[in-house]
Computed example of a mutant assay.
Amino acid sequence: MPDGRFVAGGRLALTTFTVAPLRVARVDRAAAGTAMALAPLVGAVLGLLLAAVLGGLAALAPPLVAAGVTVAVAALLTRGLHLDGLADTIDALGSYRSGPAALQIMRQPDVGPFGVAALVLVLLIQAACLAALAGRPWPALVATLVAGTATGRLAVSWACRRGLPAARPDGLGALVAGTVGPGALAVGTAAVALAAVTAVPGRPWQGPLAVVGALTVALLAVRHAVRRFGGVTGDVLGAAVEVGTTVCYLGLVLTR
């Protein structure tokens, strides 16, 4: 018996956003919409795993070392796909080309100087943010990692909302573009904002504000990419993950 929409969507979400070696028997736009709606939940699970890594290593190693290893583990758990998407998207945007010419740059296997710079800056900022969490209580550390990783995937849900087209007739973008409805977006956004309430001790407002701010920045980046490329691609979604996660981490570690 073939998987139902929810089961197929859950499997597709895990295989898209993690290294989980699950077999997906059903891949269609209905399942893809469910997968993209469940993306923040997958991000939250990843956040729990990363919090365990960071918290455990912080007791044994200097904060920056623990943070660097945690960022590396995050890349391993996602096969580096989102980082690759970020590099390809920035290379295409940095070329000042539009439409098919920009999409061709994104297809090239090499990484240009714009992409390299973006990767270095994002990874450096993420590591610095996680190092700053070393002195926080365990519940706050967990809430920060969960909220940050979930926000990056929430940006993907919003980038797949109805009304946004795909840049190509094939690929991941064509499968998922325009598949997520407003109800799923409202529930996902509220859940991630709620998860961030305890991220900053004594400031329950800062966590949800960081989530909304990071989501706004990520969606502005997606909007710019859609204007340049003609729609959403898998690389643009990967870039949204990294931008959303990084900006959310920044918003959650600012305490002055």
Score class of each variant (00 low, 15 high):
131 A>T: 07
55 G>Y: 11
85 G>E: 09
37 A>I: 01
90 I>E: 09
116 V>W: 14
13 A>Q: 00
211 V>R: 08
107 R>M: 10
189 T>E: 15
97 R>N: 01
142 V>D: 00
254 L>A: 15
11 R>F: 05
138 W>S: 11
190 A>K: 03
249 Y>C: 03
47 G>N: 05
154 L>F: 13
199 A>M: 12
202 G>W: 09
54 L>C: 02
113 P>L: 13
229 F>D: 08
2 P>A: 12
147 A>M: 06
53 V>H: 05
146 V>N: 07
133 L>M: 08
70 T>N: 13
156 V>R: 06
76 L>I: 01
106 M>Q: 15
211 V>I: 04
196 A>Q: 07
125 I>Q: 05
155 A>F: 04
199 A>V: 13
115 G>L: 08
140 A>D: 09
86 L>N: 00
9 G>A: 00
212 V>M: 12
216 T>P: 09
85 G>P: 00
91 D>I: 09
162 R>N: 11
135 G>W: 01
65 V>S: 07
63 P>M: 07
91 D>P: 10
184 A>N: 04
141 L>G: 09
159 A>Q: 04
113 P>H: 15
248 C>D: 09
227 R>Y: 04
93 L>D: 02
160 C>E: 05
185 L>R: 14
190 A>E: 07
108 Q>V: 11
79 R>F: 04
79 R>W: 02
188 G>L: 03
102 A>Y: 06
99 G>W: 15
160 C>K: 03
35 A>F: 08
147 A>H: 03
103 L>A: 06
52 A>T: 13
200 V>R: 02
26 R>L: 08
98 S>W: 14
130 L>E: 01
5 R>F: 09
136 R>S: 14
64 L>V: 08
64 L>Y: 13
12 L>I: 08
12 L>Q: 00
123 L>W: 09
247 V>M: 01
57 L>K: 12
212 V>S: 12
152 G>L: 02
114 F>M: 11
204 P>R: 11
205 W>E: 15
12 L>W: 01
44 A>F: 13
90 I>A: 07
46 L>W: 02
67 A>I: 10
44 A>D: 14
123 L>S: 15
18 T>I: 02
38 L>I: 06
210 A>L: 01
22 L>I: 03
48 L>R: 10
65 V>N: 05
155 A>K: 05
229 F>K: 07
229 F>I: 00
144 T>L: 06
215 L>K: 03
2 P>V: 04
192 V>L: 12
93 L>Q: 05
185 L>A: 10
241 V>N: 04
233 T>Q: 03
99 G>F: 07
201 P>M: 06
100 P>N: 05
32 A>Q: 06
66 A>G: 00
64 L>Q: 12
212 V>L: 15
109 P>T: 05
248 C>I: 03
132 A>G: 14
34 T>Q: 14
244 G>H: 05
15 T>G: 02
251 G>W: 08
169 P>N: 15
196 A>N: 14
203 R>L: 09
108 Q>L: 13
158 W>L: 15
97 R>C: 06
136 R>T: 10
125 I>T: 11
165 P>W: 10
158 W>N: 09
166 A>G: 11
155 A>I: 02
177 A>D: 05
237 L>F: 11
201 P>D: 07
157 S>C: 10
184 A>Y: 10
7 V>L: 14
99 G>C: 07
120 V>I: 14
230 G>H: 08
198 T>F: 13
153 R>F: 10
24 V>F: 06
80 G>L: 01
139 P>K: 04
244 G>Y: 11
44 A>I: 10
122 V>M: 07
